[in-house]
Structures are given as C-alpha cells and as structure tokens.
C-alpha cells in the first residue's frame, strides 16, 4: 500500500483544488456585480447553502464508509411533511406556542432517525446494495409526501408560521441561524472525522471492509450509524427549511441528493470510499450555491445554458484536485 506515503503530501493539493475554484468564483462574482459581496447577498447564499450543506456533511460519512444515499432529498420532503402535519395537529390542544415548535423539531429528528435507521439496517444487516435500497426509499418517501399532501402542498398554520419563522430569518449578531447551525455541524463533523474512532472506522470500512472486520471494527454497527447520522442531519436540515416557506410538497428537495453527493465529491472525498474530508464538502457546497447565485446576478448567458455552466464548473473543480491523483 503506497497510499499512506502518498497521502502525506497529497492533502495539500486536495485542499487547494476546490479552494482555488471557490476563490476564483468569489473574484468572478465580485467583478460581475458590486452587490455580490454585500452583507445581504452573502447571508442569502450561506443560508440557502445550509440545507444541502448540513445533509452533505452526513453524506460525507456515508460515502467515506463506502456507501451512498440517494433518498435524502425525498426524505427531507417527507420529514418536512410529517413535521408540518404534526405541528398543525397539535395546535388545537396546545395552541400556538413554543412547545408546539419544539415538538415539531423533535418529530423531524425522530423521523430522520427512523428513516436513516431503516436504510442502514437494510444495507448493513439485510445486505442489500446501498444504491438499490436508497433508490427504493427515495421513491417511497417521495410518493408518501405526495400522498400526505394529496398531490398538493402541505402548509404550516399561518400563526404558527409567524412564531417559527425567526428560526430561518433571524440569528445571532447578524448571522442567521441556518448559517450558525451549518457551521456547527461542519466543525463537529470535521472533529468526528479526524479525531473520533467513528471517523477512522468509516475510513477503514470504506477502504477495505474485510481488513476493517479483522481489525475488530464493528462494521455493521458503524455502517448503520452513518445512515442514522445522515437521517438525523436530514431532520436537522428540515428544521431549518420548514420556517423558510412554511410548506412541503412533492417538489420539495428534488435532486438534493445529487447536489449533496456532488458537493462531497467536489470536496475531495473519494466516491468509492476510504477517504473523507468534511471541510472539502463545505467548500463543495459553497461552490455549487455560488454558481447559481453568480448566474442569477450576471445574466450574461441565456438561462437555458445555466446547467451547462454548472456542469463545466463542477467537472473542472474535480479535475483540478484529481490532477495528480489518478495514478494511485
């Protein structure tokens, strides 16, 4: 295994690739529109990145352990739907009060926990391919939310929304809550990945499951834990998402799974597992949001071509960091 020797110098390039892309995007944005670096725009972009960002941190662990989860977008929509239904149902008995919001948040975390646990058990214990399990649950959650909403939109009670709204729009010292939560999740995720046994176990399982098993790592439990963690982070992201528009429908969270996976890979985590980088994931999420933001602010090209530009930048960002890695 020459990989260990290679790794001592490779990280610098790994870190630099996506970071460079991010810096180039920021310079580009600032030169296109003077409002790009304004407080309002920066807050908007960071807050809107928070949903995908929180999920992508969890996805980093799943992918590092050699798994994948395609269900997170549908899961977010389903959790949001359940959360709204529960809160609306509680109003007659408890009224429009803070406990209703707290119970709603608890519902989201519990629903995320259960959803993640189901994925994890089917993959790690029943031993079905992660791709197939989560492709299945992706369809299940998506159709469940459509069914719950009767094909329409589930809306949070108007008065309760007023009470819950500050969770997305307000903040501490001018930094809005979604940004704070995203930052905390990223810092804790980085610590867990680098300094906790859990993070190292994920890497070991992703690199070689057999070796990990012989090294006395409880592969099954760790694998389930990655999906449970991801599920709960989906719940957390939903807690920040629902107060924004106060609604959930079949079109909520469409393609979030691909954005989260893309952010993880752009950030330098290996898609086949074994190596994860939480900070890289954060950079990846910011790159994806900035591309959208800059395209909206610039309107230089036909909006029909937005997807093309996104695609080119995503591929370029990965090419940059993979430049010297392919031989490995």
């Amino acid at each position: 295994m020459s990989e260990t020797t290679a790794k001592t110098w490779m990280p610098s390039f790994h870190v630099l690739g996506p970071l460079l892309a991010l810096i180039v995007l920021i310079i580009l944005g600032a030169s296109i529109n003077s409002n790009f670096l304004s407080y309002g725009n920066v807050t908007n972009v960071l807050a809107r990145s928070a949903f995908i960002g929180i999920i992508a941190v969890g996805m980093t662990f799943v992918i590092t352990a050699g798994g994948i989860d395609l269900s997170v977008g549908s899961m977010a929509a389903f959790v949001a739907g359940v959360m709204i239904l529960v809160m609306n149902a509680l109003i007659p008995s408890i009224g429009v009060t803070v406990p209703v919001v707290l119970l709603g948040m608890l519902t989201a975390l519990v629903a995320g926990f259960i959803a993640g646990w189901v994925n994890g058990v089917l993959i790690a214990t029943v031993k079905i391919e992660a791709f197939i399990v989560t492709l299945g649950t992706m369809g299940i959650y998506r159709s469940l939310v459509t069914w719950l909403a009767d094909g329409g939109t589930l809306s949070l009670d108007f008065d309760l929304r007023g009470l819950y709204r500050p969770v997305y729009y307000d903040g501490l010292l001018g930094v809005s809550w979604p940004i704070i939560v995203f930052a905390l999740v990223a810092i804790l995720g980085e610590l867990a990945m680098r300094h906790l046994p859990f993070g190292r176990h994920c890497g070991a399982i992703g690199a070689n499951e057999q070796v990990a098993k012989y090294s006395a790592i409880n592969v099954q439990r760790t694998r389930i834990a990655t999906y449970v963690l991801l599920g709960m982070l989906v719940g957390l992201a939903t807690i920040m998402y629902v107060p924004r528009l106060g609604s959930a429908s079949a079109s909520t969270g469409v393609l979030w799974e691909l954005e989260a996976i893309a952010a993880v890979i752009i950030g330098g985590t290996a898609l086949k597992g074994g190596y994860g980088r939480v900070w890289g994931t954060v950079v990846g999420v910011l790159i994806l949001s900035l591309i959208d933001n800059i395209l909206n602010l610039a309107s230089i090209v036909s909006p029909y071509l937005n997807g093309t530009i996104q695609g080119v930048i995503v591929i370029l960002a990965v090419v940059l960091q993979r430049g010297k890695k392919t031989d490995g």
Binding site: G40, N44, L245, S251, N293, N296, L297, S299
Partner: peptide, 23 residues
C-alpha cells in the same frame, strides 16, 4: 429588468427573487 427560470418551484423562485433583490 430580468427574466430567469424559477421552474414553477417555490424554493427556486425564492432563490431567484433573493438574487433579483440584491441586484
């Protein structure tokens, strides 16, 4: 001033409008 695609989607429209307001 501008016409961008919000894809008949609430979240996309929210993002596009935020950017219009900055711009």
């Amino acid at each position: 001033l501008d016409k961008q695609h919000g894809n008949w989607n609430r979240d996309d429209a929210f993002n596009v409008m935020q950017d219009y307001l900055s711009k």
